[in-house]
Design a protein around this nucleic acid. Sequence first.
DNA 1: ATATAAAGTTAGCTGGCTCTAACAAATAAA
DNA 2: TTTATTTGTTAGAGCCAGCTAACTTTATAT
Lengths: 220, 220
Amino acid sequence: MNSLTEENYLKALFSLADDKGEVGVNELSKRLDIKMPTVNSMMKKLAEKKLVFYESYKPLRLTDKGRREAGLIIRKHRLTEMFLVEKMGFGWEEVHEIAEQVEHIQSAAFFDKMDVLLGYPKVDPHGSPIPDKNGKLVWRQYQKLSQSKAGETLVLAAVLDSTTEFLTYLNSRELRLGLKIKIKAVEPFDGSMTVSYGKHTALVLSSTVTERLLVEPAGT
Amino acid sequence: MNSLTEENYLKALFSLADDKGEVGVNELSKRLDIKMPTVNSMMKKLAEKKLVFYESYKPLRLTDKGRREAGLIIRKHRLTEMFLVEKMGFGWEEVHEIAEQVEHIQSAAFFDKMDVLLGYPKVDPHGSPIPDKNGKLVWRQYQKLSQSKAGETLVLAAVLDSTTEFLTYLNSRELRLGLKIKIKAVEPFDGSMTVSYGKHTALVLSSTVTERLLVEPAGT
DNA sequence: ATATAAAGTTAGCTGGCTCTAACAAATAAA
DNA sequence: TTTATTTGTTAGAGCCAGCTAACTTTATAT
Ligand SMILES: [Mn+2]
Ligand SMILES: [Mn+2]
Ligand SMILES: [Mn+2]
Ligand SMILES: [Mn+2]
C-alpha cells in the first residue's frame, strides 16, 4: 500500500508526463511545492517499489505499474468530484480541494458505489476523462480554444484549470461545459477573442482564459 | 489544526472517559493499540495544545476545548456513517471503517452538505447520538438489554459494538434498530436470554450479545 | 507492613517526509 | 569553446509518530 504522500507524487508524475512520458525532478518539485532533494529521494523510494524508472541525471518515467496506480488514484479523484457535483449539489468550482483529500480513502466499495450511483460516468465535472478500473485513461481529441479561428463554432468540452478562481470566473460569464461558442474575432496582438454564446453576443476572452479551455467542433 | 493522529487520540479519550471524565494511559494505549510511552508523549503534546489536562501519574482528562474538538470529529464520523447508509446504500455493518477515514476530511462544507441532505439526523445508523455543531453530545437514557428482566418488552435503540462481525451477526438474526423485543426468559446460569420479535418466536441471545445492545421501554 | 504486580515515565532509537547547504552534471549563453 | 545558468545529487539535520528497555510510582496481595 502506498502512503498518501506517495500517492500525491504518483498523481503529479502522471499529469506532468510529456509525450515521451518523461518528467524532470525540478518540474515535479515545482508542481508539488516540495524541494528538489526531497523529491529526489522520494523518486529513489518509488523506484525501489517499481513505480518509477530512476537513473541519475535522467528524466523520470512512471513504470506500467506506477502509471496504473496513478490512474486509479485519479479515478477516485474524478469519481469523487462527479459525486460531489451530481449527488451532493456542490458547484464545479468547490470540488477539487475536497476530492484532493477524498481520493486517498482506502475502500474500493466506497468508490464503486459512487460509480454505480452516478451511472458509470466517463468524464468528471471539468471534462477530464475518468480512468477505468485498470487505471487506463484516454483523452478525446480536444484542442485549446486559443488554437481556434474566427468564424468557427465550437463546444466547450473541458477546462485545463480546476481552481476555484478560474471556475468562479467562468461561472460569472455563464461559461459551462457543453456550451456552443462562436468565435467572432481574434485580436492578433494579444490573442484575445471576441465570442458569442447563449445570451452573450460579444464577450471578450483573454488568451489566459482561452489557453485553459478545451473545445471540440460543434456537432460531434 | 490537529493531525489525523491527534484526532484519533482525542476521539479515543472522549469515548473512554468514565463518569469523572478520567482515562488512564494504559487504557488509552490498549484502545489505540499504541504502546504506553508513545501515548504518554502524545498526551504531553496535547496538553501543550490545551486539549488535555496532564499531570504525572494522574489520570488524563480532556479540557473543554479537547472535548469540543473530539465531539466535532465524532460528529463527522457519525454523519458520514448516516450518509453512507441512507444516501449510498451501504449496510450498517460496512460503514464504520470507511467513516474512520472520512472523519478526517478537512471541509466544513462537505459535512454540512451531508447534514442537510440527511435532514439533520440526531442519531447514526448504530443508534449513537450525533454531536451538534459545537461538538456537544447527549445520550438518551438507554439501558443494556442484559439488565432487563423476563416479561419486559423493549425497543432496540442502539448497539455498543459497530464492528462488521457483530453487526453481521445481528443481520443474520434480523435484529435491527427500532425492533420491539419481548424477553421470554433469562437463564440465571449464564445470563442468556430467550426472546421473541418479528417472526422469531424463541431465539436465544448470549450475554455477549445482550451486553452490546441498548434498549428502551416499548412505547416512549 | 512488606512484597508483588500493574501502571506510568524516561531515555534512546527508528522510519517517513521534510528542509538547507554544498557540490556535480548537463544545458544554454557568450 | 569556455563560461554561466539551470538542473540534479549528496550530506546532514529536524520534526512526527512510532518502538524497546529500563526505571519509578502507585495499587494490590500476601
Ligand atoms: Mn480535480
Ligand atoms: Mn491528494
Ligand atoms: Mn462508527
Ligand atoms: Mn479515524
